[in-house]
Design a protein around this nucleic acid. Structure first.
Length: 439
RNA sequence: GUGGGUGUAGCUCAGUUCGGUUAGAGCGCUCGGUUGUGAUCCGAGAGGCCGGGGGUUCAAGUCCCCUCAUCCACCCCA
């Protein structure tokens, strides 16, 4: 038999049962928290028409879109008409454009689903990964921006990830900053990318980066002086109040800070040089970093222009995204060594004659509320093999009913962890299990 | 996309320096230590054309070239 590579494609993963359990549990926690904040679930197709996706993620982003070849006679041309979704925000914008009038305004939704990027895989970085987005469409109010942040913070806290910081900024504040330091508009984006690296490469690194990007020496010098100050935020604030955009941006930030107030499990603060990669943000932007990690675990912001790309008029929108794969990685590390619990009970099958009886017993115990596995193996049904299987599955109790027990109307119950077992009247099985399993 | 590391049993890795008889360990797996007792203990066994291709050589897991995969850093991102 020819053997083919059994590994999943590069950048994708198989999730074995224990891992699926952990993931599903985290997803359930997230769903519950978002719903408590009044967000509704939405689902959209795994793939979209190509033109829905292209032009939304910038030049580099467009190249990372997984395209789907046209079928039939067009197949050989390499032409693509569909593509796997790249994120959940653009599909949402499409949905908002398509069903706008049927949806309540503002429309608040969350979505947990896989997305695909033709990226180079790395640690905590995949070509197929889940995103978890929460957005509000149709509100230009800072209440919506603040609600996003509070909901995201609540989710992180519910997941047990206390110790995070929400860094808040605004595109307007950044525009004001560019103006305040006299940086020409055509260098704005490039400058912001450089500034955004402050935490990573330090003041000197940023200075070098900005010079490389063509920022004038006096502007760099002015920036570096402020960046080096302990009260960086205040220093930038002073600069920003000098121009209109800067003042407006600061007002945005302060209003949200005010609305959000205290957040359980974390802090919220103004981060004056935090930018954000995605080009479609238009207003407030935020990023959540965890103290135990130097990577972003959630991010978001306002993108008032995106829905308008699908219909005539602009619709305000704001939202956020949880870096769920990184969060799951964190949770996994925290849970290391604690195996996922298996079924409560394994009912053994000692012989063909007893199979029907074992089925009946398993059914009886499921109706009694237990999670019950029935040994489904063929071949040798040696008890040792079945107990080994029970151990492997982390089953708590084995129920054994061979020919002897059946003839006597009795059943043997073995508690795996303690090794204790008892043979009791069949009728007393539920009561006995209740004692063993604490129900 | 750029630079570097690593590919040997199902898993984690020795062995490669200076090429030389049947390539090892731990864990896992299978079987056994008598009837129907796991996890522990003891014993036995299965499992590898040493990532793939080409080259040098009497001889290649070991040296050279190519290729693929994977990991780390940078870039970018979630």
């Amino acid at each position: 038999m020819a053997s083919i590579d059994a590994n999943p494609p590069s950048g994708t993963r198989d999730f074995l049962p224990a891992e699926v359990s952990r993931r599903e549990h985290a997803f359930a926690t997230i769903r519950t928290a978002f719903q408590r904040h009044g967000f509704e679930p939405l689902d959209t197709p795994a793939f979209e028409r190509l033109e829905v996706l292209t032009g939304k993620y910038g030049e580099e982003g467009d190249q990372l879109i997984f395209k789907i070849l046209r079928r039939g006679e067009h197949e050989t041309t390499g032409e693509a008409d569909h593509a796997l979704r790249y994120d959940l925000t653009v599909p949402l914008a499409r949905v908002a454009a398509r069903y706008g009038s049927q949806l309540p305004t503002p429309f608040k939704r969350y979505q947990i689903a896989p997305v695909w990027r033709a990226d180079r895989p790395g640690k905590g970085r995949y070509r197929e990964f889940f995103q978890c987005d929460v957005d509000t469409i149709g509100s230009d109010s800072a209440v919506a921006d603040a609600s996003t942040i509070v909901a995201v913070a609540d989710v992180l806290d519910a997941l047990g990830l206390a110790g995070f910081t929400v860094q808040l900024n605004s595109r307007q504040a950044l525009a004001g900053l560019i103006e305040a330091y006299g940086i020409p508009p055509q260098l704005a984006d490039s400058t912001l990318v450089g500034l955004d690296k402050l935490d990573k490469i330090g003041v000197d690194g940023v200075a070098a980066e900005l010079r490389d990007r063509g920022v004038a020496a006096d502007a760099v010098e002015a920036l570096v002086t402020d960046l080096g100050r302990d009260d960086l935020a205040d220093a930038i604030r002073e600069r920003l109040i000098a121009n209109d955009v800067g003042r407006a941006g600061l007002a945005e930030v302060d209003q949200i800070l005010d609305l959000v107030g205290e957040v359980p499990g974390g802090r919220v603060s103004y981060a004056p040089v935090m930018a954000r990669g995605l080009s479609y943000y238009t207003g407030p932007v935020f990023e959540v970093v965890h103290e135990a990690l130097d990577t972003t675990i959630a991010a978001g912001g306002r993108y008032d222009g995106l829905v308008g790309m699908f219909q005539g008029q602009d619709v305000p929108a704001t939202g956020g995204s949880l870096g769920i794969e990184r969060i799951l990685l964190l949770l996994e590390q925290a849970a290391e060594g604690t195996p996922a619990p298996g079924p409560d009970v394994l009912v053994t099958v000692m012989d063909d004659a007893g199979a029907a009886d074992a089925f009946a017993t398993a059914g009886r115990l499921r109706r009694a509320g237990y999670t019950v596995d029935l040994y489904s193996g063929g071949g040798s049904r040696k008890l040792g093999k079945q107990l080994k299987y029970a151990d492997r599955r982390a089953v708590r109790v084995a129920v054994i009913r061979g020919a002897d027990e059946r003839a006597a109307g009795r059943v043997t119950v073995k508690h795996l962890a303690s090794g204790e077992q008892a043979t009791i009247d069949d009728a007393g099985l539920e009561d006995h299990l209740a004692g063993l399993l604490g129900r």
